[in-house]
Amino acid sequence: MQQVEVKLPEKAYPIYIEKGLFAQVGVLVKRQWPKIQQVALISDTNVTPLYAAQIRAQLSDAGFKVYLYTVTAGEASKSLGTASSLYDELLGDGFTRSAGVIALGGGVVGDLAGFVASTYMRGLAFIQIPTSLLAQVDSSVGGKTAVDLPAGKNLVGTFYQPDAVLIDPATLTTLSQRYLVEGYAEVVKMAAIASVDFWQLIEQIPNVAAITSHAEALIKASVAFKARIVMADEKEGGLRQILNFGHTFGHAIEAGAQGALAHGEAVSIGMVTLTQCFEHAGLSPVGTTAKLRHQLAAVGLPLTSALIGQPDFYARIARDKKNRGGRVNMIYLKAIGTPVVYPLALTALPEFVTHNLLEAQ
């Protein structure tokens, strides 16, 4: 079994990666939680029919009393209202601070369950079992939890590290092609900012089928890189900002699309259009955008959006929680594997995009 260790000043935890790992969930969770007896298994309407019975049986066999809570699949469940409903269910079932929460699902379930675990009675033990590629390579690692507000994504949340992350790449076979590819956009992001070696691994993915055949290597490389960044900057005070490559534009595009774009699809557009801007401005090397385009287009990811440059596009960026003092920190590539933070005044952003992207097209 492949294992990545996350070692932080106040906590260390393992990330296990192995095809077929679901057959060992009970043993692995018991190893982490020898004194816990009561477990809340939080999943959604897509994942519960696929895996909840198997995981619940594993946990029960290991001696846990398991309560399954299923939320409606989709971003709309990542809300204060859904969190409040889960608090009520936990209270009704007698959950105390000696219990644990397990997230079984994709990024929405992981963010929501993590937020509930971190806030219910000031914190319960928490384990991530991500079932989507997006969650396996990104959102399950690093301790970010959040729910959305009408004004934007992830505006209410905590930093709350899990006790373990259990990743079984076999779950990717139940994803639709669209959502497998969506997760791959985050892998491309990781490779672009990580290293030339990781990028060379990405260049071995000429089509969608290759994502699945290389899944374990892609997941391991992504998780190892993100773990290294999180260990250096747990709460995004500096270096961890580079993980937002493509996200400044991507989040605004995703919100503006009103459900028509998945997160990874919006990030794909964000990476390409942002890199176009910086290449035109002479800060990213000529050909960098073409490299990104080639890898993303090979699996059918979108590369552009008519939403860029609209008034609402800039308004959404202005509301982003990462902005400080009227400035937005954008991440560009000085080279593959060399990300750079570029602070820009929000008032200067429309001219920057218009000159370097819209007029250059």
Rank of each mutant, 00 (worst) to 15 (best):
L274M: 11
T158D: 09
S98E: 09
I242H: 03
Q32D: 01
G152F: 13
A12P: 01
P285C: 11
A135G: 13
L261Y: 08
I167N: 05
L80W: 01
G282K: 10
N154M: 06
G287S: 12
V66H: 13
K30C: 08
A262S: 13
G74F: 05
L104F: 04
G183T: 05
L86T: 02
K144V: 07
A23T: 14
V187P: 02
V267R: 05
L243H: 11
Q295G: 02
I219A: 06
L357C: 13
T354Y: 12
K226A: 06
F352H: 15
S98G: 02
G309C: 05
A151N: 11
V71F: 13
V267Q: 04
A266P: 04
V340A: 07
L80M: 14
A192G: 06
A170M: 08
P130L: 14
V6M: 00
T72M: 06
P162D: 10
A260I: 10
I202N: 02
Y87H: 11
M190H: 15
W199R: 02
R316Q: 15
A191D: 03
E182A: 15
P169D: 09
F225D: 00
S84Y: 09
K226W: 05
E182F: 06
G94S: 04
K334F: 00
A209K: 14
L349V: 08
A306L: 11
L28D: 12
L349T: 07
S43H: 03
G92F: 05
H355M: 14
V340Q: 14
L344Q: 11
I331W: 02
Q310F: 03
Q276H: 10
K153H: 04
D93W: 11
T347Y: 04
L201Y: 02
A76H: 15
T158C: 15
